[in-house]
Design a protein around this nucleic acid. Structure first.
Length: 866
DNA sequence: GTTCTAGAAC
DNA sequence: GTTCTAGAAC
């Protein structure tokens, strides 16, 4: 039985023959670009009939898309479909879902009876490895004694959120089986006492060192325990975490929830409460608790543990201090690699409080306790202060960030996240909502929030998912809206999220949608009115959006104050609903750089029902803007769409238009009709007449050098289909074309590498709002060493989400059938973001300084990629 | 997409 | 003095 271990941690069991890994093309090199897992294999299987056959079958309720690239063209396999491969054939297997269950089997008809695979083996191809943390089997006794993981710095008897979970922990659940009891936590784990002194060399990330994992102040090692289990013996290096012994969410993708905060800020208490309250599997990963031989674990071990948990469909809580962006980036990259959303809860308790708590505790697994621990807290607080990446920013890649300034905030965040994955029907959702309300209300000592009317919508799966998630997040929003300093970033996140909930949205969600920063959730009634106005005309909503986002000051100096635009969510369209509505108002006669040909994408799509109808279309243009939910729920949406015979959205498509049908044509940002914007189109349609030097030409694409390269190597792969003016014209059926564009690009990159072996990584992607007509993909090296890179817009167009990585677009097309354009507000913000190094994320004051920096930046040198 | 210009900010 | 932004024109 040959086995192939996929990056997801899953096995492929092959009854006969072998799967030989050729190598892994890890697209995780670019955090934002990662959407898939890739493994290259060679099939080597023979049958008694002399013709080899290996059957690959996608499997699972998520209806994953399994793309099997077998030479060219590639095949796309949907659930239940399979492909046969011949002996020695090389192929790439692309799993578009990290939790994809892949079944590999020999064709039974070709197998000799004695060699047929064990039915059980095929029925359960996902076999946790010894190093895998199963949400249901995590912390098996031999692997991870259940001590020391949760009970670190955050046993806070003085905290209302820790000591009284009546508000914070819905339902006052019993302690999960694998969570340590207080008694267990205080008892040293057998086998780990020896050698505890060595732990003094590194307290893990608790250390105030900038590098995060570098050694910190020496501390005594007495009384430290390991939840990593096995002492210094067996299991070293294995992935460990503590799960809550609950099943993974059946219909929700796992998430990475990164906690950030000083020691003593309440991270582990947050984890414990969430794991108790949540109905789904969470695995708690704490670097200090992953100990081996008395030494704290490494970041890599945390990542390994997270990978294993995600592979099992469990959500992950990454419990580290995460004081700067660099530390956080590892887990953002992991989330991106796995195609899951990364969220953050930033616990920003006053350092004095954290220090007091740390000083009082005596059983922290990393020894951050007592007076020594107190010093660590203040050192870390100082580093946070002088650094430029605290608090965490959505621009780092988080889908959402919940800023918690006190225990009440933390309790509300727990309550909100406890709703994630909570299934319908109405009874449970109502209970969850009530719990969230109770938490929010208790936290403030105020009346319950007003979104208790959230009802289980009776619509499609998609609607239910969105509504469920909206409730989850509205619970936090309701809290955030009541506190003194609402977070603009969170408000910006919730607003489109609530809109996306469509008819299922609650009053609070509507409030979040309409109120914005000026009056977040202050009153459901005005908000509902605003929402109604938005649905009708969009004008009022546009105003609200402007209030929310605010006018960015002309000064380029970035401010880290709450409400700074930088804290907005990446990929979130703050004015999405309103902007789309505005587009309706402003819709003009459709323009194009050329009249679409008969039967072209534009002509076909407009006003017609599309099988790849978009999510959110059923609630009008105002509800279909790109937002956090569209990212978070992408797979669920795909599932919902694929669930019905003709797609759940098919019936809806006829009643509404997708924003992309409007924006490219009517949005003034798309100046695709300008004469100067026609050059690429001329190249595409008449390459011989364009006078352009062409490096590659075929029926589908042309590759040219960018006329104003922004890096040492910068090319454009231009689609030749005249109907494809921009990415908004793309549909799911164009995925093969995109794949071809990628291949052409990769070939060009290989050539460039031959000439310039030291070239940094390359990126493939598209500008969110292109200036030139005709779909074109940028292929650009990451040195950004070019005199043509002259201003902030240039820089940000390649280093912010304005640059849509190839994989992201491909995933969006697969998931939603089309690309949803960003809003003008988001475009503006992305263009004007501070100048941040794409390697180390440090902000530079000016472009010349940035250019100097990137030449010397080790992180840039270390970039790997295509 | 670009260049050029003027004015402001540093 | 340099650098940035914004607008106009192409």
């Amino acid at each position: 039985m040959a086995k192939l271990l996929f990056p997801t941690g899953k096995f492929l069991n092959v009854a006969r023959g072998t799967l030989r890994p050729l190598g892994r093309a890890d697209v995780a090199r670019y955090a934002e670009a990662v959407t898939v897992s890739r493994v290259q294999c060679v099939v080597s299987a023979t049958t008694d009939k002399g013709h080899p056959a290996l059957k690959l079958t996608s499997q699972g309720s998520q209806n994953p898309t399994l793309v099997l690239s077998k030479q060219e063209p590639h095949n796309e396999l949907s659930q239940g479909q399979s492909a046969l491969l011949g002996d020695g054939e090389a192929f790439s297997l692309i799993c578009t879902r990290p939790d994809l269950a892949i079944r590999v089997e020999m064709d039974p008809a070709d197998l000799q009876p004695e060699s047929r695979p064990e039915p059980d083996a095929l029925a359960h191809p996902i076999t946790p490895t010894a190093a895998t943390t199963s949400p249901s089997k995590a912390a098996a006794p031999a692997e991870a004694p259940s001590s020391g993981d949760i009970q670190d710095e955050d046993k806070l008897p003085s905290s209302p959120y820790a000591s009284d979970d009546g508000g914070a922990s819905p339902g006052r659940p019993t302690r999960p089986r694998h969570l340590p009891t207080a008694a267990a936590a205080s008892a040293p784990a057998a086998g780990t006492a020896a050698g505890t002194n060595s732990a003094a060399s590194s307290p893990g990330e608790e250390a105030p060192a900038a590098a995060g994992d570098t050694p910190g102040p020496s501390r005594g090692g007495q009384g430290r325990r390991s939840s990593g289990g096995g002492g210094g013996g067996g299991g070293a290096g294995s992935a460990r975490g503590v799960g809550n012994d609950k099943p993974p969410a059946a219909t929700r993708p796992p998430v990475v929830l990164l906690l950030a905060g000083l020691p003593g800020s309440g991270k582990s208490t947050f984890s414990r409460l969430l794991m108790e309250a949540s109905p789904i599997a969470w695995v708690h990963i704490n670097q200090d608790a992953i100990r081996s031989g008395g030494r704290p674990g490494s970041r890599e071990q945390c990542i390994t543990a997270a990978k294993a948990a995600l592979a099992q469909g469990a959500c992950c809580i990454i419990d580290r201090c995460h004081g700067d962006a660099q530390q956080r980036s590892s887990f953002l990259a992991l989330a991106a690699e796995r195609g899951v959303a990364a969220h953050c809860v930033a616990l920003q308790q006053p350092p004095e409080l954290c220090a007091r708590r740390v000083a009082d505790r005596t059983d922290h697994p990393g020894g951050v306790q007592g007076n020594g621990g107190k010093r660590v807290v203040y050192q870390m607080a100082k580093q946070q202060q002088v650094g430029n990446s605290w608090p965490p920013a959505c621009s780092e890649g988080f889908v959402s960030i919940m800023d918690c300034n006190n225990d009440a905030d933390a309790a509300a965040a727990v309550a909100a996240w406890a709703l994630y994955g909570r299934e319908e029907p109405a009874a449970s959702s109502a209970a969850a909502t009530t719990a969230a309300e109770a938490a929010a209300g208790a936290a403030h000592g105020s009346a319950q929030v007003t979104h208790g009317s959230a009802r289980a919508p009776s619509g499609s799966k998609k609607q239910r998912y969105l509504a469920e998630a909206a409730r989850t997040l509205a619970a936090w929003e309701a809290h955030a809206g009541k506190r003194k300093r609402p977070s603009a970033g969170i408000t910006a996140f919730f607003k489109p999220a609530a809109a996306a909930a469509g008819s299922g949205r609650s009053a609070a969600a509507a409030a979040a949608a309409g109120a914005g920063t000026a009056a977040p959730a202050a009153s459901a009634a005005p908000a509902a009115k605003a929402a109604a106005g938005r649905a009708g005309a969009g004008a009022a909503g546009t105003t609200a959006a402007a209030k929310l986002v605010g006018k960015r000051p002309a000064s380029p100096v970035p401010l880290a104050a709450a409400g700074s635009p930088k804290r907005r969510a990446v990929g979130v369209q703050p004015g999405g609903a309103e902007d789309a509505g505005g587009a309706v108002v402003e819709q003009k006669k459709k323009q194009s750089c050329d009249k679409p040909q008969e039967g072209t994408a534009g002509a076909r799509e407009a006003g017609t029902s599309s099988p790849a109808s978009q999510p959110g279309g059923d609630s009008g243009a105002g509800a279909s803007g790109r937002n956090a939910f569209s990212v978070l729920m992408a797979s669920a949406t795909r599932n919902a769409r694929d669930g019905g015979p003709a797609g759940a959205g098919a019936a809806n498509a006829s009643s509404s238009k997708h924003p992309s049908d409007l924006d490219t044509a009517s949005d003034k940002r798309f100046k695709l009709t300008a004469p100067w914007a026609q050059h690429l189109r001329k190249v595409a349609l008449s390459p011989e007449d364009s006078g352009q030097k062409i490096f590659h030409k075929d029926d589908q694409v042309i590759l040219i050098a960018d006329a104003y390269p922004k890096a040492r190597h910068h090319a454009l792969v231009i689609a030749r289909d005249p109907s494809l003016r921009s990415i908004t014209d793309l549909r799911a059926r164009h995925v093969p074309l995109l794949s071809h564009m990628r291949r052409v690009a990769e070939e060009w990159v290989r050539d460039q590498r031959k000439q310039d072996p030291e070239t940094a990584a390359f990126k493939l992607g598209f500008h969110a709002v292109p200036s030139m007509c005709q779909l074109h993909m940028h292929v650009v090296s990451q040195d950004f060493d070019s005199p043509s890179l002259k201003n902030k817009k240039h820089w940000n167009s390649f280093t912010t989400p304005f640059f849509i990585p190839f994989d992201n677009l491909e995933r969006e097309l697969v998931a939603q059938g089309r690309h949803t354009p960003i809003s003008p507000d988001e475009e503006k913000e992305l263009e004007t973001q501070e100048l941040r190094c794409h390697g180390c994320s440090k902000v530079q004051k000016s472009l010349p300084e940035l250019k100097q920096h990137i030449v010397a930046c080790g992180a840039v040198k270390g970039l790997v990629g295509l």
